[in-house]
């Protein structure tokens, strides 16, 4: 079941095309990474999902129907540029934003109390937002985004500005929300966080969707048949034995006696042969494929070398 489907969406502004025929589907209950270099069109896509702007062409389906104004109540959006009223008190302000998302005042108050207890920040209630540190304001913004229990959460660079401890706290909150059934769209440049928490990704470059799919599948698919072997034994003998079977990329003997070697094996069918050959002349400790990191895939995809 897909919570959100983007079908052939295009959007252009006066002089440039922000999105060009972009399609993607976001499965219910997934954490979906939306990647792309600056200016690729991610923010425009997020704004279209939020109904801040309308697409020129194409449609957006939410929970099976064309998205309606009421659906914004089921969406929580944390924009990249955080914004709160500096002169307004924390509690009052959070309630204000919750009411704009359709909650009643009393409902918002009790929900907010829960979150404040959870984060241990009850004493902030009557502080002005301007008195909070940047990280504290970020936490509050996070609460404002999720407190109306939206089905779809959109986080634009959620970890920027957080220290590692709070980033972890946030990460576990996000995973918990997913476990409770929320679907999460994650827009970021931070590839390690993508590998850690995203199930699916879409990579947008120059207004187009250039890569979509399950993170593990993508990484394996774009592996370039490079393997690494760790062994004990004679380096020269191994190099001589493997010379005809595959391409040696790098060989690193080590004084500890545990050596490493990087190989490129042209086709999958030769992998067994290579392992057998290596096994005969040295004591193999491990033999594994090097799966490219999302970072490598990102850079290669954007540069057009995928």
């Amino acid at each position: 079941m897909n919570l959100l489907t983007i079908e052939n969406v295009s959007k252009s502004f006066a002089k440039h095309t922000a999105l060009d025929d972009v399609s993607l589907t976001i499965p219910q209950g997934s954490i979906y990474g939306l990647l792309g270099p600056n200016g690729a069109g991610k923010t425009t896509l997020l704004r279209i999902i939020n109904r801040i702007t309308a697409p020129d062409k194409g449609r957006v389906l939410f929970d099976g129907h064309d998205i309606t104004p009421e659906d914004v109540y089921s969406i929580g959006y944390l924009p990249e540029e955080r914004g709160l009223y500096k002169k307004m008190k924390v509690g009052e302000q959070a309630i204000f934003f919750a009411r704009l998302k359709g909650m009643s005042k009393s409902e918002a108050t009790s929900k907010l109390r829960e979150w404040f207890d959870k984060f241990g920040i009850n004493e902030w209630w009557n502080k002005e937002v301007g008195e909070l540190s940047k990280g504290m304001a970020q936490k509050m913004q996070f609460i404002v985004t999720v407190m109306h229990n939206p089905k779809l959460l959109i986080f634009d660079e959620p970890f920027s500005g957080f220290d590692p401890i709070n980033a972890n706290l946030l990460k576990s909150e996000i995973l918990e929300l997913r476990d409770k059934g929320a679907t999460i769209i994650f827009s970021t440049h931070n590839m390690s966080s993508v590998e850690e928490i995203c199930d699916h990704i879409t990579l947008i470059n120059k207004s187009r969707n250039i890569l979509s799919g399950n993170v593990e599948e993508i990484r394996h698919k774009h592996g370039s048949n490079i393997f690494e072997a760790v062994y004990r034994g004679n380096e020269a003998a191994l190099l001589a034995a493997l010379d005809k079977r595959c391409e040696i990329l790098e060989s690193k003997p080590s004084p500890t006696g545990i050596n490493r070697i990087k190989l490129h094996i042209a086709s999958d069918s030769e992998v067994r042969g290579v392992i057998a050959t290596a096994n005969e002349c040295v004591e193999l400790r491990s033999f594994s494929e090097i799966i490219p990191s999302m970072n490598d895939i990102f850079i290669r995809a954007v540069n057009g070398n995928l």
Binding site: N50, R51, I52, P69, V72, Y73, I75, Y77, P79, E81, R82, G83, L84, Y85, K86, F97, L100, K101, Q141, V144
Partner: peptide, 16 residues
């Protein structure tokens, strides 16, 4: 002021 401290970006997702 609202535009500068980006409150508008937060609001605009829930209010026309």
């Amino acid at each position: 002021e609202e535009k500068n401290n980006r409150v508008l970006e937060v609001m605009v997702s829930s209010v026309r």
